[in-house]
């Protein structure tokens, strides 16, 4: 017996609204985060991620309000990422109602943050969010929404993150993000095979079969999807039935 593979739905949130676009460009409003999160829960999603892409202090406090409203009616785990820099940020997001926090740039700058957060709140709520881009034979870590290259090998950084206290790795392929060409299977497997914490594959989902491949070939414990659900290219139900058909263990939608 083993854990089911998880389908994680990601919502980009800006100033309290879910937006859709290519990373930070051409954003358009697609709805209310609380309503969309509940909608995906009803569809059978296993988990929701809010990625806050607000740039302002106002956007930040709006996010906490959104997290609280969501937690009051969402009965699956909620992860919040984007702009988490300090233990105080972690505390605020968790107190608002998130179950996990995804820490990206700040963990690279200050790896101790992963340790501190996991000592206070437990490793199960600390997610190391890694943006990786292929560089020769391996992958390099980028921070600040992919704008700054860090002097880190992504596979090594994933291992280090886990040993510092992260209980999960959210691994985004920048090469594939938004492309719909499928997840970077090689990257996903390279990381999943060397860390002892769950790996969530992210970036590149174009179809239900891409999700199956990330798990089957990429050894990911979970896969993150966004755009292909928002524009109805596929559905949670369709992805889960393909996962089941590929003999992956899935949670049946209620």
């Amino acid at each position: 017996m083993t854990l089911t593979r998880r389908l994680v739905v990601c919502l980009d949130v800006k100033d309290g609204r879910v937006v859709k676009g290519t990373r930070f460009l051409n954003l358009r409003d697609v709805g209310d985060p609380t309503e969309l999160a509940s909608h995906y829960e009803a569809d059978g999603a296993d988990e929701i991620v809010f990625l806050d892409i607000s740039a302002s202090v106002e956007g930040r406090s709006t996010l906490l309000d959104v997290v609280q409203r969501t937690a009051e009616r969402l009965f699956i785990p909620l992860t919040v990422g984007g702009g988490i820099r300090t233990v105080a940020d972690v505390t605020n997001v968790l107190r608002a109602g998130a179950d996990k926090v995804a820490i990206n740039s700040a963990a690279v700058t200050n790896p101790h943050l992963l340790t501190e957060a996991s000592e206070v709140f437990g490793a199960q709520c600390v997610v190391s969010s890694i943006d990786a881009r292929r560089s020769g034979a391996t992958w390099r870590v980028f921070t600040h929404g992919g704008r700054i290259a860090a002097d880190l090998n992504a596979i090594q950084w994933a291992r280090t993150s886990a040993s510092l206290g992260a209980g999960e790795i959210l691994l985004t392929s920048m090469d594939r993000d938004g492309s719909r060409d499928g997840y970077d299977i090689e990257l996903t497997r390279a990381v999943a095979d060397v860390v002892n914490v769950p790996v969530v594959a992210s970036g590149g989902a174009g179809s239900a079969s891409d999700v199956v491949a990330a798990m089957d070939l990429g050894h990911a414990d979970a896969a993150l999807v966004a755009g292909i659900l928002h524009d109805s290219t596929t559905s949670v139900g369709e992805i889960k039935s393909q996962m089941r058909a590929a003999s992956l263990r899935v949670r049946y939608a209620a």
Partner: peptide, 21 residues
């Protein structure tokens, strides 16, 4: 090997008032 356990797991019981997963 994988600790923490994070995810959906089966509840092995005959008690039908418990969730299956």
């Amino acid at each position: 090997t994988r600790v923490p356990q994070i995810g959906w797991n089966e509840i092995e019981s005959l008690d039908e008032s418990l969730p299956e997963v």
